[in-house]
Write a protein that binds this DNA or RNA. Structure first.
Length: 479
RNA sequence: UCCCGAAUAGCUCAGUUGGUUAGAGCAUCUGACUGUUAAUCAGAGGGUCACAGGUUCAAGUCCUGUUUCGGGAGCCA
């Protein structure tokens, strides 16, 4: 600590009885004009602060409201009450910031809904649910860097503003300083981006992969972890216009190596949180169980949150080829009873219902699907010897769907140019990318993992807007 | 963007077949009590029934449009 207060988590987990301490935090509840439940965000557990009757004057007492911030000094003592081992007997109490109870929109005893809390996202961190979620989110971010650092990867910052959407990963947000009421025009009447800030049309990145590959061709192993932007009009529980993505890129890796890394990576993240955020996970586990109770029997999940995470940790991900996946679907009772809305045949891009069947009904664990038909995958994926499929791999997680998308990259120049030509991707703009295939090309692979999706999976939350502090979605850019 | 559903007090929700003055719990305020654990008990205040039209003697309730939100689908991470 760099100031003279003690964090509530430290206080509660240590043997501090008898010590004189200073604590600061926000009031969660004030009972009996005597007992303050104080929280400072270090843990969901509140510290009980006891003030003697008559110790404070009436006006001060009235200012101790839910949400008010306090500085308290006092002695740590064994609690007389049953709810907690330790409590602090206040000797001085200073109100740092008042909180008008009549106006404060976050009255915890009202059991506010997640939907309501999304509207007051600036205050929702002060709830147990969002406290737990964002401490877990932090831990996952930290674990990501720890994992790659241990493996000798270089953290590469790829650009946020780029000049092309060559990957075709989605609609982009345009970046420009041109006046939109009267932009400069070319002789042909089109907007003249030569006059723009960068002298060309630019947009926010939809992926750092192509730049990541450049780094991998020197450092062998790199990863990116940064914001990504897609201007798709997606209104779902698992899409954001601004999200965070992790994209490792490894030279000398084939598809198999790529899968091994991805699986070890996900398990590392889960394992990290299981040991370092136990209390928060237990809270989220309980929260999920409460929520499941509201659902009809048939819709309830079979496993609790912690149980699910342990299961994933202790079992290998199922690995099947696309062709096998299609065969399983065609042989499934669901298909034979015509339960699928969309038809199944080799060559289709699997629909959500198909992926859910494989993951949630058939295998009941994460599944890695490999070797997809080339026609439904991106140009940079390595063409297999059969000429029909590419060395792609998607990891599908129960309840979330696609959590990882990756592939071995096409390192053979002629084949890559051929694919780009077939898919009408201009090679001139990507000369810098093609240079990696001209000068010392090596087999390499990589994948992208949606950060918020892994946070969803680990916290058991179901709406992606609840696992990012301030969600950006179509028609919503508050805060 | 498409399909389905919703919008009533600060929050969570009821509101019957269209019928008189709009209901509850919690929160808030006032008072009581004082080792409480979402403290408890008593009382009080609090409503443009999302918005705009329409049907009707009469609309929170029926119809149309708009907005926002939720769930599902597509796009994907």
């Amino acid at each position: 600590m760099f100031n003279n207060r003690i964090k509530i988590k430290t206080l509660l987990s240590g043997d501090a009885a008898g010590q004189q301490v200073t604590v600061m935090g926000w009031v969660r509840s004030f009972r009996n004009n005597q007992f303050i439940a104080l929280n400072d965000g270090s843990t969901n557990n509140n510290l009980q602060v006891v003030v003697e009757l008559g110790q404070l004057d009436e006006p001060t007492l009235k200012r101790i409201t839910t949400g008010a911030s306090l500085k308290i000094t006092g002695q740590v003592v064994e609690s007389l009450g049953k709810g907690q081992k330790l409590e602090v007997k206040a000797t001085t109490l200073e109100i740092l910031g008042d909180c008008d109870a009549e106006k404060y929109p976050l009255q915890l005893k009202n059991r506010p809904s997640l939907e309501y809390l999304r509207e007051i996202a600036h205050l929702r961190f002060r709830t147990n649910t969002f406290g737990a979620i964002f401490r877990v989110r932090h831990a996952l971010a930290f674990a990501i860097h720890e994992f790659f650092n241990k493996q000798g990867f270089v953290y590469l910052h790829t650009p946020i503003i780029t000049a092309s959407d060559a990957e075709g990963a989605g609609e982009t947000f345009r970046v420009t300083t041109l006046p939109f009421d009267n932009p400069p025009r070319t002789a042909a009447g089109e907007i003249d981006f030569a006059e723009d800030f960068f002298g060309k049309s630019t947009n926010l990145t939809v992926s750092g992969q192509l730049e990541g590959e450049l780094g991998a061709m020197a450092f062998s192993e790199v990863y990116t972890f940064g914001p990504t932007f897609r201007a798709e009009n997606s209104n779902t529980t698992r899409h954001l216009a601004e999200f965070w993505m992790i994209e490792p890129e490894m030279a000398f890796y084939d598809l198999e190596d790529n899968m091994n890394l991805a699986e070890a990576f996900i398990k590392y993240l889960i394992g990290y949180v299981m040991t370092n955020n136990r209390e928060d996970l237990e809270f989220l586990d309980q929260r999920l169980a409460e929520e499941e109770k509201q659902k009809p029997q048939a819709e309830r999940s079979e496993m609790g949150l912690i149980e699910k995470l342990e299961f994933v940790l202790n079992n290998n991900f199922e690995r099947i080829t696309y062709t096998e996946a299609i065969r399983i679907l065609l042989d499934s009772p669901a298909y034979k009873k015509k339960k699928f809305k969309y038809d199944v045949s080799w060559g289709i891009d699997m629909q959500s219902e198909h992926e859910r069947y494989l993951v949630e009904k058939h295998f009941k664990k994460p599944v890695i699907v490999t070797n997809y038909p080339k026609d439904i995958k991106a140009f940079y994926m390595r063409l297999n010897d059969d000429g029909k499929t590419v060395a792609a791999m998607d990891i599908l997680a129960p309840g979330i769907g696609e959590i990882v998308g990756g592939s071995q990259r096409e390192e053979r120049l002629e084949k890559l140019e051929g694919r780009m030509h077939d898919m009408h991707i201009p090679t001139e703009e990507l000369n810098w990318y093609l240079d990696t295939r001209r000068y010392g090309a090596v087999p390499h692979a990589g994948f992208g993992l949606g950060f918020e999706r892994i946070v969803l999976f680990v916290t058991g939350m179901t709406n992606i807007r609840d696992v990012i502090p301030f969600a950006r979605t179509p028609k919503n850019c508050e805060f």
